[in-house]
């Protein structure tokens, strides 16, 4: 059993990281698209009231020098605050926000457990009465993150089930899979609460389990804690099959589409990419397209293989 838990944990983490990596690479490797930005573009110097550099283009493309830093900071903050939801959809925010706080903190909880294990291995006990300040910090950090995560997560999962069932507009768009997701996360968080209350009130076992994971030296835990570990690992394995990626893809949707106002400078990589794409064959069937030629040939109405003058 002990070795199984460790193996499952390794598998779950490797699996989710690989799956996410594959998805991110797939999205990143999609061809450059036509510009389709939407204002306000946050990185624009005058973005506050929505203006683009295009407003000042008397000198063609002299004014373009923007940074993505502002956008990334905005999105990171938004991932923690959900202020867009708070502004425009408050009741939904009331359950969505705790649900996501549950996820964020459960991840932080595990990160702390991992580093806590390293701290322990380095010889600093992680405990309330640890003589090492680091030990104290990890002890309380793990405890606070775990407890808040389980409680907010369980509240959010249950709340979303109710909200989605009770709100006719949301219900109409829900699939059985949506409810399965909520129930699954509810079970994960509830199992955490149960293990915390009845088996592991200070997460001592959980910390020891993680030391075992890191040192490949499995320790035994109570069944309630084991159940939570298994459920959480299964949850990690399940995540790539849900829309959970939106936490990451959101950055692409904003930075690569909504705020992507990179001009196509002559001789740039964008331009050479486009040249390549214009040589791709088209097979749309509508008669006006007259397919069987490349984009460039179709757009300039050249016959296939006709030499460019």
């Amino acid at each position: 059993m002990n070795i199984f838990l460790v193996a499952l944990t390794y598998f779950a983490y490797i699996f989710i990281i690989l799956m996410y990596a594959v998805k991110v690479i797939k999205i990143a490797r999609l061809p450059v698209h036509l510009r389709w930005e939407l204002y306000p573009v946050i990185s624009e110097p005058k973005g506050r009231y929505g203006s683009a550099y295009i407003e000042d283009e008397r000198e063609w493309r002299k004014n373009h020098g923007k940074t993505v830093r502002k956008g990334i900071i905005y999105l990171l903050k938004e991932n923690l605050k959900f202020s867009e939801y708070f502004k425009s959809n408050r009741w939904y925010w009331l359950v969505l926000f705790p649900w996501h706080i549950g996820f964020i903190l459960i991840i932080v909880f595990h990160i702390l457990c991992f580093f806590g294990a390293l701290v322990m291995i380095a010889g600093n006990p992680v405990a309330a009465d640890s003589v090492y300040i680091l030990g104290k910090i990890f002890y309380y950090g793990i405890l606070v993150c775990g407890v808040i995560s389980f409680i907010t997560g369980a509240f959010g999962s249950a709340g979303l089930i109710i909200k989605r069932l009770a709100d006719r507009d949301l219900r109409a768009f829900a699939t059985p899979q949506n409810y399965l997701n909520y129930v699954f996360t509810l079970v994960v968080f509830l199992s955490g609460i149960y293990a915390w209350i009845f088996a592991d009130p200070t997460f001592y076992q959980y910390r020891e389990f993680w030391r075992g994971v890191v040192t490949l030296n499995p320790v035994s835990v109570e069944p309630a804690t084991a159940a939570h570990i298994i459920l959480f690992d299964m949850f990690l394995i399940y995540l790539p099959f849900t829309r959970s990626m939106h936490y990451i893809t959101k950055f692409f949707a904003f930075l690569w589409v909504r705020w992507d106002d990179r001009p196509n400078f002559r001789g740039s990589k964008v331009e050479s990419d486009i040249k390549g794409l214009l040589d791709k064959p088209v097979s749309w069937s509508a008669p006006h397209i007259k397919s069987g030629r490349t984009w460039a040939e179709i757009v300039t109405e050249k016959k296939h293989d006709e030499k460019t003058p």
Partner: peptide, 10 residues
């Protein structure tokens, strides 16, 4: 990618 590179990613 061939037929819809123009908007595939968005």
């Amino acid at each position: 990618k061939e037929n819809n590179w123009t908007f595939l990613q968005p």
